[in-house]
Design a protein around this nucleic acid. Structure first.
Lengths: 220, 220
DNA sequence: CCGCATCCTCATGGATACTG
DNA sequence: CAGTATCCATGAGGATGCGG
C-alpha cells in the first residue's frame, strides 16, 4: 500500500472519488492558490511572480508552475519579451471559490496587518469579493489609493468591480493604508472611524453607497 | 528571516495581509478541508473520522483537530457516549467555499472512480453543490441509493437539498453506482446513458426535473 | 474498543548557490 | 532572466503502544 497514493505527475493524491478531494489534489498544495491569485489580474513573468510571493523558494515555484501547467490551470506564453505565465480559462474559474474562501477568511484580517507582506494588487481580488452582493444604481466610482497604487472601485447594478486606470483620476479618491481599506470593506471599521485614518478627496457620499451596512451606523 | 513565518499555534503562515492567504493559513494544510467535509453533515467520533479519511495518520488527525479547535473551526463535544467533533458556526460557513471548489473540480471526476475510496456521505455535500442553481416548482423528490445508502434529493424553488430519511421510501428511487450518480449530477452523463447502468423505480420524469440540461439532450 | 502519544522512515518544503 | 542543483529542516505516513 505504497502505490496509488501518487499520480502520474508526481503529486500526492487523497485517492477519493470526491470533487472537493480531486480539486485539492490539483490546487491544494502549498502556494498553488496564491500563485493563481497572482495571475488572476493578468499574466506575470517568473520573477514578478517570485517577488510577489515573498517566501516561496525558487525551486518550489518552478515545480508548482510545471504541475499547474500539466494540470491545465496555467499556461506558459512565449512573448517577445520572454516567458509569461497566464491562467487558462479553467484556471480563471477558480476566482469564484477563491473569492468565497477569502470572504470566509475576512474576519481573520481583524487582527491587523502586523508585519505581514502586502501588495495592492491583492485588493483587486479582495474588494469585489468582500463587497459581494452590493449593488448601486446609478453606478458609483471611487478611487482607492493604497501603498502607491491607485485603483478604481466601480459599483453598478451588476455589483462591484475593480480596475487600474491608465490615466485620469476619478472624482472621489480615498487614500488610506491597506488595513483601513480592508477594514472598511470587511465591515470591521465604520466609515468615520476609517476617515480618521484616511484622506478623502471629493464626494464622500460614494463611500456610503459602496461599503457594507455594518460600516454605516453613523452618517459620514 | 526564520521567524514570523510561524504563528503561536505552530502552523506555518504565509505572512500576507490577504484574506485568502489568512484563510489558507488556517484551513489550507493537508486534510483540513476534508475533515471539515466529514463534519458538515454532522458531528463524528474520532474513530469514525479516521476510518472515513483513509490514509490519514492518526497523529496528524489528532494534531489537525487540535489546531482546528484552537482556531475556532471545530469544537469538541463531550457526549454521554464519548467525545464528538463538530463544526462551530464559523466552521460550518466553509460549506460555501467548499461547494464552489467542488463545483470547480467536478470535471476531474470525469476520469472515473478508478480504485479511489468513496463514501455515500460525500454525496450529501456534492449533490447540492453540483446542482447549484437548479430549482423546481412544484418541488420534486428523488431517492438515490448508492453503496448501500439511501438518500433523498429534494429540489424546490429554493434549490436542491439532500437528507437521509429515517424511514419511508420515496416514490421514485434511482439505484446506481457512485460514478453514475456523480456523472449525472456533473453533467457528464446523459439521463439515458445513466439509465443503462442504473435501476429506476417509480416515475422517471423527476430525473429530467433535477439533473442538468446537459444530461437532457435526449428524452427519457 | 476509543482516543490519542511516540517512534521511525522517507517524501516534501525551504534556503542558498549556481548556471545557460 | 529563468530557472536547476544541492543541502538541510520539517512534515507526512505507517506501525505500535498505552491509559481509560
Amino acid at each position: 500500500m505504497v502505490d496509488n497514493v501518487k499520480r502520474s505527475t508526481g503529486y500526492r493524491s487523497y485517492g477519493q472519488f470526491c470533487a472537493l478531494a480531486r480539486a485539492l489534489d490539483v490546487v491544494g498544495e502549498r502556494w498553488n492558490l496564491l500563485i493563481v491569485r497572482e495571475l488572476l489580474p493578468g499574466p506575470l513573468r517568473y520573477t514578478e511572480l517570485k517577488s510577489s510571493l515573498a517566501g516561496v523558494a525558487t525551486n518550489l515555484l518552478a515545480e508548482r508552475l510545471r504541475t499547474l501547467e500539466a494540470n491545465g490551470i496555467v499556461e506558459r506564453r512565449l512573448q517577445d519579451s520572454g516567458v509569461a505565465y497566464a491562467l487558462t480559462a479553467w484556471g480563471a474559474q477558480l476566482r469564484e471559490p477563491m473569492e468565497a474562501l477569502g470572504r470566509w477568511g475576512a474576519p481573520l484580517l481583524a487582527t491587523g496587518r502586523g508585519d505581514d507582506a502586502f501588495r495592492p494588487r491583492w485588493l483587486t481580488l479582495a474588494l469585489p469579493a468582500l463587497l459581494h452582493g452590493v449593488t448601486a444604481t446609478p453606478a458609483v466610482e471611487l478611487g482607492i489609493e493604497t501603498d502607491g497604487l491607485l485603483m478604481v472601485l466601480r459599483v453598478d447594478s451588476d455589483g462591484p468591480s475593480v480596475s487600474v486606470p491608465a490615466g485620469g483620476r476619478p472624482q472621489s479618491v480615498l487614500t488610506a493604508a491597506p488595513d483601513v481599506v480592508v477594514g472598511l470593506a470587511a465591515g470591521g471599521l465604520t466609515i468615520d472611524e476609517a476617515l480618521t485614518r484616511a484622506k478623502l478627496e471629493g464626494d464622500g457620499r460614494v463611500l456610503r453607497a459602496v461599503f457594507p451596512a455594518a460600516a454605516r451606523d453613523r452618517p459620514i
